[in-house]
Computed example of a mutant assay.
Amino acid sequence: MRRLVNLRPGRGSALVLGALPFFALLLVYLVASDLRLSENPSDKMLPALSSFADAIRQYATEPDQRSGQVLLWLDTQASLTRLGLSLLLGAALGLVFGIATGALPYVRAGFSPFIATLSLIPPLSILPILFIVFGMGEVSKVALILFGIAPFLMRDLSMRVGEIPSEQIIKAQTLGASSWTLITRVILPQLLPRLLDSLRLSLGSAWLFLIAAEAIAADEGLGYRIFLVRRYMAMDVILPYVAWITLLAFALDWSFRRVNRRLFPWYSGKNA
């Protein structure tokens, strides 16, 4: 039947429809920028595209006079290092505690209330505590991101363990599987693709906590640079940095999705 709910765009149409909001936003920006610059050529709120090009060239290709390094790549390396370490530690903690609380009733009784409580604490509220305990260095920044994503990963993976059909657990035990064998041969293989999905879902929060930590206490990083230049109202630097962060986040999300499809095709097919 020809109803809107039954009409599906082709691949080309889907690409066009997906690009339309971006073109519309760009058009609105160009019109608004032209109007503001016509009234005040020195306006910094909505700079022209040429200003963006100059700022990108300066930050992405020219060494900084003070440090001698190219700032965009210096900031990118610093931020991705902090983010990558936090995701790696969060994945390890999420997997260990997720499996333990999901598969072992005694561990679940002991740790689930504690993990649930941790997940309800706003991570940014403990940032001053982290700075006091760990100082203003890298540890406190990684700890903030880790505190923000690890409880979510633990709870999500624990629930996924509970969704494993009980028939599989019973059959494995009937065949003589020990608790360790159940975890390594039945639970873990089914949990690894879900871990990648959970990491994808936590990327937004991880970036938020990273930018917040860098804005408060850092001397390099994407968040640090944005908050450094805001005092000069340098929108020609801030907006490209925001766009670059968005592109990096999209690339990480796409990478997790591709790895999941490559390593666990059965999982991708099940969720298609």
Rank of each mutant, 00 (worst) to 15 (best):
I121G: 15
A177V: 06
I164A: 01
A143M: 04
L118D: 04
W266I: 11
L17R: 10
A177T: 07
L191F: 04
S33G: 13
L239V: 15
A109E: 08
A212V: 15
D219K: 04
L88T: 12
A213G: 10
T101G: 01
Y241Q: 02
L93C: 13
Y59Q: 04
M235Y: 02
R8F: 05
I187T: 06
M136Y: 11
L15Q: 14
R36L: 02
Y232S: 09
R2Q: 13
Q173K: 12
I145T: 03
S202D: 00
Q173L: 07
V237H: 00
A234Y: 05
Q190D: 08
K171D: 13
L263E: 10
P21E: 10
F209L: 14
L87W: 05
W254Y: 15
V161A: 05
L80A: 10
L95S: 12
V96M: 05
A92E: 12
A272M: 12
L37Y: 07
D64N: 15
L104R: 08
A215I: 08
E39V: 13
W180F: 14
D34C: 11
P128T: 13
P128I: 14
S67K: 05
V5I: 15
S198W: 07
S202P: 00
I132H: 06
A177C: 10
L104D: 04
A60D: 09
Q190W: 03
A109P: 00
D219G: 01
P63C: 13
F209C: 07
F256V: 05
G98N: 01
A14C: 01
A53F: 09
R258I: 12
R155Q: 11
G98I: 03
D34E: 10
